[in-house]
Design a protein around this nucleic acid. Structure first.
Lengths: 153, 153
DNA sequence: TAAGATTGAGTACTCAATCTTG
DNA sequence: CAAGATTGAGTACTCAATCTTA
């Protein structure tokens, strides 16, 4: 009869493995947006959402990205100061503002997008198409499972 | 001919998906080690390594966990103050110290280990055995690929 | 009162510099 | 000088409280 009180093995813990893989794959690209453009991860994510989906409010970014609202607020403020992001009054709601990338911001996003695309292509080649497909399915299942509510954090 | 200058889609970026999945699966367990035992993530990881593998030096923990050395140093100091970790001189090397969990620390680790095991079991049930197996293979491949050097960070 | 958003205080992280021993 | 480990300063994050508008 097996010993059911074996010590817990962190290295087989799914959240730990996921975190290690996330860190490992993020590291090299982080250098790009940090060293080349002086962006934090949250700032890069805000730009990526606005660059991909167009103008939206801070709240929309929070819902889409699961990034906490104070992080988004400070990232937006920093990006505006640098002239990479513009705020316009939101129609029908005086509380919110429509956020969008300026032309300069769009150029930065385009540059980072190319680098990210290269990095992603490399990762997918490492795994192969079949493994990538199953990996994506599993990740999206975990993400959906993990965020049953409106607002993360 | 397809437009090759489509805006980059963050939501299909592998590092982003991995990070979202890691966050989603970590969130509920984080409540356990934070709310129930007042631990940070690094402190929990240090305890998990010592609890699973026994006494080792701070450097060993760094290599195994890919956690940066100053984070380990401060986590070790905090755990020692709480009486959950003991330092003993390392044989053959006056610079290093052998770290290990005290009896109290082992009890905390046992409690957290059970909770972590439960959480992991739930996640694996959500995905199913087949998907878990392919997921683990892919994650380990990415982790190995991403840490070709001795020391992360 | 609730929702969108921001601010302030405390915590944790990051990077370079430092200390001690090999 | 290398390596194990710690410290200090600056940055980013976290949580509660606040401000404004719906």
């Amino acid at each position: 009869m097996p010993d059911t009180s074996d010590p817990f093995d962190l290295t087989a813990f799914l959240p730990y493995l996921l975190n290690q893989a996330a860190e490992a794959t993020s590291r090299s690209f982080q250098q790009v947006y940090r060293a080349r453009h002086g962006l934090t991860r949250t700032q890069w994510r805000v730009m990526a959402h606005l660059g991909r989906f167009g103008a939206m409010t801070a709240r929309d970014i929070c819902r889409l990205s699961h990034v906490e609202k104070t992080k988004v607020s400070r990232a937006v403020a920093a990006l505006q100061v640098r002239g990479w992001l513009r705020r316009d009054p939101a129609p029908h709601d005086g509380r919110a503002e429509m956020l969008s990338l300026t032309e300069t911001g769009q150029a930065v996003f385009a540059d980072l997008g190319l680098a990210a695309q290269d990095h992603d292509t490399q990762l997918r080649q490492t795994l192969g198409a079949t493994q990538v497909a199953t990996l994506e399915t599993a990740l999206r299942a975990l993400i959906t499972q993990g965020y049953p509510h409106d607002q993360g954090d």
